[in-house]
Each structure stands twice: as structure tokens, then as C-alpha cells.
């Protein structure tokens, strides 16, 4: 990969809770190349959404401090960018769609207004042009009868339709990067497949980079080129998708893979791995996965493991397994 489009370095996000400061995202680093699709997986509460929101500085401001670390984009650090410039990036160069299409659209504004707003803001087009472009965008996201739909309010649309509208809003200004935070989790299985197809086609047509966050390993397999696995606020493994499916390094990834359900089953939650994700405020010495890890060793509970290189384009946060792999390769 040459210079990546977006590079996140050591991103750390903390929240103030009743029980004191809690680290939701702990020194996460990632990179997305031009036109690349990166998948992020992990159980609920592992910090995926917080990571994604922090890239656009949309994290809940009331209960956090400014995240620390660096977010390089277009030669700038998004974390220190003046608010004005940040607003130009949001929706203009980096767009985002969210998990729940039912609540993500404003109930009192028409579709035309909500799509057009982006265009007026970033491209300075007038109302009439914005409406015309909104209709084209609705066509593009395959909403039938776009010319009529465009003047309706969101409550007249189904969940799948609303998510298409969200996608239309997101791609309105041809962003370079689209962050999709569980875009299909709230939808029916058949609709899920349609939305994913749409996203994939759009990515190809528009040449966008995409960060796709999901619970669903199946979605990752179909969509992403590279995958990043998060556990309890940390990256535990990154790998090209094919390699990860063939040969997971981290025991947590392995757990996720063996727990993959049958393909045509409705996947809303990650299939369960024994044990449960730790209380985010709890202090777990050593490897955070050690209480659940089937391959736990004495040293795991003592030393906090680092993210180690485990082959080309691969990293994993599990010293015993990385060492074992290295031995195999030598042998």
C-alpha cells in the first residue's frame, strides 16, 4: 500500500462514567487505502462504533475528552483540525451511515431536503438543482419511483428504503471514504443482502474506500479485503480476509470463526463464544482475553501483550500463537 487515504495512529477514547474514566478505545491504529474495503469485527461493546465516530469527531462530546492519537487524512490530522474544516470533511470527503435507519433520518424534513442539504452545503448548488440531484441519487440507490418519493417524509418508507436514503445522503458528494457502521444489522435478511450488494456496486462505481463495521463474519468475507478484529477496545488481529479465514492467529478470531452460523440464518448478533465480554471499567491484567481464552498460558495473565507482526500485512496481539506460527514457518 502506498500512502493510505486514512491512517489512524494510537487512537484512544475515554468516557466519564459513574465508576470513573473508562477506556472505550485503547491505542487503536488502522489504515485504509484508496478504493480499499476494510472490515472491522468484534462483539458488542468492543469499541467499533466509538472508533468510527471518532474519525469524524462525532463522539458524544459531553462525556468524553478529546480523543488522543492521530488521524491522518489528506496531509492533515483530523483530531486537531479547526471545526470549520472538519465540517467540510464530514459529508464532503468522509461520509457515514449508521446502524438504525429508522431513527437516523429526521422525521420532520422531506427526503429531498435531507439529501439536498449535503449538496447545498458542500457543492453550493441551489434548491432546485439539489432536488434534481436528490432524485438521481435515489435512482442510484435503487429506490423505485424516485421522483415521487423524494418529496415524502421518512415515516412513509420501510427500514430498507430508509437505509437506501441514508446511503444516498452519504454518497451525495462523492466522498472518498464511506464509514458504514453496521448498515444491515437492523434489517431483514433479504434486505441485508440487497443493501450489501448496493454498497459493493457503489464502491466499485464510485471508487470509494469503505470501512465496514459488522458483527457478521459472512459479510466480512463477501465485502472486505482486509479485516481488523477488535476486542475490549483493542485491536487483536489484522489480516487480509482470505488469510484470516484460512488461518486465524488470535484465539478470539478463531472463536469468532468457529462460531459462524449457517449462511442463510438471520445473523444479528455474533454467535456466542464461551464467557462474556468484560465489564469495560474492569481492570484485567495481562491479555484482556485471558479470562475466556481456551489457550491461556501463565504469562498471558501477567504481561500485557503487544500487537506483533505475524506475516506480511498481518498482526496479532497474542505472543504465544505468533511465536508458534513463526516456528512453523521456519520448520
Amino acid at each position: 500500500m502506498a500512502v493510505p487515504l486514512l491512517e489512524v495512529d494510537d487512537l484512544t477514547v475515554r468516557f466519564r462514567t459513574d465508576a470513573g474514566w473508562m477506556t472505550a478505545v485503547d491505542r487503536v491504529s488502522l489504515a485504509v487505502g484508496e478504493g480499499e474495503a476494510l472490515g472491522i469485527v468484534g462483539e458488542s461493546g468492543s469499541g467499533k462504533s466509538v472508533t468510527a465516530l471518532s474519525i469524524l469527531r462525532l463522539h458524544a462530546a459531553a462525556t468524553t475528552r478529546m480523543p488522543t492519537g492521530k488521524i491522518h487524512y489528506g496531509g492533515k490530522d483530523l483530531l486537531t483540525l479547526p471545526t470549520r474544516e472538519m465540517r467540510q470533511i464530514r459529508g464532503g470527503e468522509i461520509a457515514m451511515i449508521f446502524q438504525d435507519p429508522m431513527s437516523s433520518l429526521n422525521p420532520v424534513l422531506t427526503i429531498a431536503d435531507q439529501i439536498g442539504e449535503s449538496l447545498r452545503l458542500h457543492q453550493g448548488v441551489d434548491q432546485a438543482t439539489a432536488r434534481k440531484r436528490a432524485i438521481e441519487l435515489l435512482d442510484l440507490v435503487r429506490i423505485p419511483d424516485a421522483a415521487r418519493r423524494v418529496d415524502e417524509y421518512p415515516h412513509r418508507l420501510s427500514g430498507g428504503m430508509r437505509q437506501r436514503v441514508m446511503i444516498a445522503i452519504a454518497i451525495a458528494c462523492r466522498p472518498k471514504l464511506l464509514i458504514a457502521d453496521e448498515p444491515t444489522t437492523a434489517l431483514d435478511v433479504t434486505i441485508q443482502a440487497q443493501i450489501l450488494d448496493l454498497l459493493r456496486d457503489l464502491q466499485r462505481e464510485l471508487g470509494m474506500s469503505v470501512i465496514l463495521i459488522t458483527h457478521d463474519m459472512g459479510v466480512i468475507a463477501e465485502f472486505a479485503r482486509r479485516v481488523m478484529v477488535m476486542y475490549a477496545g483493542r485491536v487483536v488481529e489484522t489480516a487480509p480476509v482470505g488469510q484470516m479465514f484460512r488461518r486465524p492467529v488470535h484465539p478470539y478470531t478463531e472463536g469468532l470463526l468457529t462460531a459462524i452460523p449457517k449462511l442463510d440464518v438471520d445473523v444479528r448478533r455474533l454467535p456466542t463464544i464461551a464467557g462474556s465480554i468484560p465489564d469495560p471499567t474492569a481492570v484485567i491484567p495481562g491479555c484482556r482475553y485471558s479470562p475466556r481464552c481456551p489457550q491461556v498460558q501463565e504469562s498471558c495473565r501477567r504481561d500485557s501483550p503487544a500487537l506483533l507482526p505475524a506475516g506480511p500485512e498481518r498482526e496479532a496481539r497474542c505472543p504465544p500463537r505468533v511465536a508458534a506460527m513463526a516456528k512453523e514457518t521456519v520448520a
Binding site: L56, A95, F98, S103, N106, P107, V108, L121
Partner: peptide, 29 residues
């Protein structure tokens, strides 16, 4: 606290418009 406020911000809408256009009419209900 609603998601659509976050959507507005993600579009790059400024704070004043977020409040006066996106939040205010819903508050009026």
C-alpha cells in the same frame, strides 16, 4: 440524543443549523 442529529452532524451541518433546523422543529412537537 436522537440519531438523526448525529446524521446531520455527519453531513457537515454546522451547529446553528443543527439546532435551529434539525433539532428545533422536533422539539416543538
Amino acid at each position: 440524543d436522537q440519531d438523526f442529529i448525529r446524521t446531520a452532524r455527519a453531513k457537515g451541518v454546522d451547529e446553528w443549523t443543527t439546532i435551529s433546523k434539525h433539532a428545533f422543529r422536533n422539539t416543538l412537537i
